[in-house]
Nucleic acid binder design. Structure first.
Length: 775
DNA sequence: TAACACTTGTTTTTT
DNA sequence: ACAAGTGTTA
């Protein structure tokens, strides 16, 4: 025990040891926040608190996983088992599934992601005959989301004069009605959106005191990470759970609050003390991550914000280099400069590629760096962008799963009723939808009993609808016996998705095939994993779905030993650190984003975002901006960000537009050539280098679940030829490791091999895509 | 109903 | 520039 605490500095130690009441830990960037949380939980366990009495809420699943591992390292695997640790969304969706009946849902409810939500809002707007130029689904859903995160239910919403007035002024007075219908439809679909997972938890606790009582007793100690990014709904859940015993510890940094657009309320952390009387505050001010220069520069920046908790972050590491600010002529040159810089720094400092990160404000900026890195043969990995589960082909299949698990799911229904095309068009779908409304039942009910409702649908179409219904009904039956993986394979086969996708030989089609294959593999792995964890029950589709719905790119681990430059948005970089960081696109209207101009709070949040970016760097931080940027199809002039003036000059060294950034002749030529090409969009021929094509055609595989998004350069995207692979061969697969080929089969045009892997078990590989070598 | 040509908005960040 | 949405035609 003693040596456990010896690993902490005095303020960290004090924060860990205080367990008798509410505590607020203000943790500056790089000050060992995760360390405190980890040790605090370990400390509680060592004090004898059973693990299942501890609730620890994190921002990402990844953070939860990592912390679990670290705790297990300190107290042992066994002692750590049973901890309630996860994101708000995953923990409370688990609880909601247990208590679903109390809220008139069933435990197999679907979780809508934001695109599902937007789709539903859009459908409703159409049904109400509103102009979708005025009532744009995105912003409308945003408004609804904001209401939910503030625990404003549709009824309350409809009776709040100030909100109604606000909507009237923004020319959208009927949002309250859309909200009402949206919520009704979610319920009818037995579905919850992200915000519902939190709001319904609040409703559950409000309407069922006995349930609240039970969880209050269960969670004897509550810890919340990244508290600055919680919203009111989350705050209220914690408040209720902690109300009696008051054993709650929240950790965060107000200077790193960057999610207000998602409803996060910085007041939660600023006012924690008044919400929890008797709060003890701890400040972690020593930064162990970055050089003094980086810390000082970041401090000078954040000082420009008005609202904040005072703290004095300092570093005792080397002074370090000044932050280099480089201006480029164009976004394209910016890409070249960064790529060249990485190459030289890697050699000069003997750094690994994985020591570098390129951080940008918007995902769209990644493109240019993909190009320049690729040209320099620098391996990289992009996080973010379209996540695997958002891809069309994956979502389509998932929609089938959702229908099987929960036939009331309206959004899934719409997605798959005519996919793959089976001759049920818009006209028919409208008839079905209207009938459902008229009789106040679900879509599934209508197509289950077509003859009962007089729909005026011709015989041919009726037959096709019945065919669809029977197919789903059969899946539902098979879902009783089959595992998620087995049923998943069956679905893509029986629906014709497999055939359609696999026979498409265009590059896009091949990438789709790969993604479909990856999804099936992910299911297989998921089933296997649950078995290994000692789960006795068969792993069904519903289990897979409830996990998949809450997975995000931030949750994916980077594979060990893979040496690649990281590209991500600043948001995604929160909580991470790198030796050398490039903060790119530091231009007015881009960073700070044009969307946030005007409001003070918005601008301050952007400044915090910049603060987050800088403080990711341990050793070197380089800031770049371009004087012209290609945007919306044309090159537009750009100027440096106002934020650069917020950093005290003494910590900066500015380097003006060095064309020398592009040292190689080839790159310099490439720069001009590209400019020409861009300013006159007519296709100029480009014989020397292949143009950078669409993402999909380059390296489309987004490995599933536990494997990260992976758009890799320098590799062989569409990989190994199916050479004469024979039964009995030993192969080395990129992800599954060594394995023996059991059999080779030819289904359709695709050669498949069944392989028994030493560690990963039995897998089916599509030879035309699988990445492996024959040993 | 499906395939194709044409028009429009889009780019802030994401559990 | 691009994707998604709309309208037209077979």
């Amino acid at each position: 025990m003693e040596n456990l605490l010896d690993n902490l500095n005095p303020s960290q130690r004090a924060a860990v040891e205080f367990c008798d009441g509410p505590s607020l830990v203000i943790a500056g960037a790089g000050s060992g926040k995760t360390r405190v949380l980890t040790y605090k939980i370990a400390y509680l366990l060592k004090q004898g608190l059973p693990p299942h009495y501890i609730l620890a809420l994190t921002f990402t699943n990844k953070a939860a996983r990592e912390m679990k591992v670290r705790i297990a390292e300190v107290v042992g695997q066994k002692a750590a088992r049973g901890l309630w640790m996860g994101t708000f969304h995953s923990i409370f969706s688990r609880i909601l599934r247990n208590e679903a009946e109390k809220l008139d849902f069933t435990s197999n409810f679907t979780i809508f992601d934001s695109s599902d939500s937007k789709n539903l809002v859009k459908t409703i707007i159409k049904e109400m005959n509103l102009d979708d130029k005025v009532y744009r689904p995105g912003p409308v859903h945003g408004q609804i989301s904001k209401a939910k995160n503030s625990l404003i239910t549709p009824n309350v919403y409809a009776n709040k004069p100030d909100i109604l007035e606000h909507d009237r002024q923004s020319k959208r007075p009927l949002i309250y009605e859309i909200y009402k219908r949206y919520q009704r439809r979610l319920k009818a679909s037995n579905s919850m959106d992200f915000d519902d997972l939190l709001m319904n938890t609040n409703i559950l606790f409000r309407d069922h005191p006995d349930v609240l009582e039970e969880y209050r007793n269960r969670f004897q100690y509550i810890l919340v990470d990244e508290y600055q990014d919680t919203n009111f709904s989350q705050h209220n859940i914690v408040k209720q759970l902690a109300d009696v015993h008051q054993r709650v510890c929240v950790v965060g940094d107000d200077a790193q609050s960057i999610y207000s657009f998602r409803g996060a309320n910085i007041d939660n952390i600023l006012k924690f003390k008044s919400n929890y009387p008797g709060t003890k505050t701890f400040k972690l001010e020593q930064n162990y991550r970055s050089t003094q220069n980086i810390v000082s520069a970041a401090n000078s920046l954040i000082k420009k914000n008005s609202e904040q908790i005072f703290k004095n972050v300092f570093s005792e590491r080397d002074k370090g280099e000044k932050i280099e600010v480089i201006s480029a002529f164009s976004d394209f040159e910016e890409g070249i400069i960064v790529a060249n810089k990485i190459s030289t720094m890697r050699l000069e400092q003997q750094a690994m590629y994985s020591d570098f990160a390129i951080l940008y404000r918007t995902n769209a900026q990644s493109r240019i760096f993909e190009g320049s890195l690729r040209k320099n043969n620098i391996p990289y990995r992009i996080y973010g962008g379209l996540s695997f589960y958002q891809r069309k082909e994956v979502k389509d299949i998932i929609s089938y799963f959702r229908m099987i698990v929960n036939p009331s799911d309206e959004v899934a229904f719409h997605r798959i009723i005519n996919y793959p095309t089976r001759g049920i068009g818009n006209v028919t779908v409208t008839k079905i939808t209207d009938a459902a409304h008229a009789h106040n039942v679900g879509l599934w009910e209508i197509i289950s009993n077509l003859d009962k409702y007089d729909l005026n649908i011709n015989a041919g179409t009726t037959k096709r609808i019945n065919g669809f219904r029977d197919m789903i009904a059969e899946f539902i039956e098979q879902d009783q016996e089959l595992s998620a993986f087995e049923l998943g394979e069956l679905v893509i086969k029986k629906t014709g998705i497999a055939q359609e996708t696999f026979s498409d030989m265009s590059p896009e089609g091949m990438s789709r095939t790969q993604n479909v294959q990856e999804l099936i593999n992910a299911m297989s792995e998921f089933v296997d994993m649950r078995k290994e964890l000692g789960e006795e029950e068969q792993t069904h589709l519903v289990d897979f779905l409830s996990e998949a719905a809450l997975l995000t790119d931030q949750d994916t681990d980077s594979e060990a030993g893979d040496d690649k430059v990281t590209l991500m948005t600043v948001h995604a970089s929160k909580g991470l650190e790198f030796e050398h960081v490039f903060v790119v696109g530091m231009e007015q209207d881009l960073f700070p984003s044009i969307m946030t101009q005007g409001e003070m709070r918005g601008l301050e949040e952007e400044r915090r975002l910049f603060y987050v970016a800088i403080t990711r760097a341990k050793q070197t931080c380089i800031i770049t901006f371009a004087k012209s940027r290609f945007k919306h199809g044309q090159t537009a002039p750009a100027r440096q960000s106002q934020f650069l003036n917020d950093i005290d000059e003494q910590f900066l060294k500015t380097q003006t537009a060095s064309f020398g950034g592009a040292q190689k002749d080839e790159s310099a030529g490439g720069f001009w050539e590209s400019m020409r090409q861009r300013t006159q969009p007519t296709q100029s021929t480009q014989p020397a280098r292949p143009t950078f094509k669409k993402r999909e055609t380059v390296a489309p595989v987004r490995p599933h679940g536990t494997t990260p998004i992976n758009q890799t350069s320098g590799g062989n995207p569409l990989s190994s030829e199916a050479r004469a692979l024979e039964e009995g061969d030993m192969i080395e697969h990129e992800r599954f490791g060594r394995g023996e080929v059991i059999s080779i089969e030819n289904s359709g045009n695709d050669l498949r091999a069944f392989v028994e892997f030493e560690t990963a078990g039995r897998k089916q590989l599509l030879l035309k895509f699988a990445k492996f070598t024959i040993l």
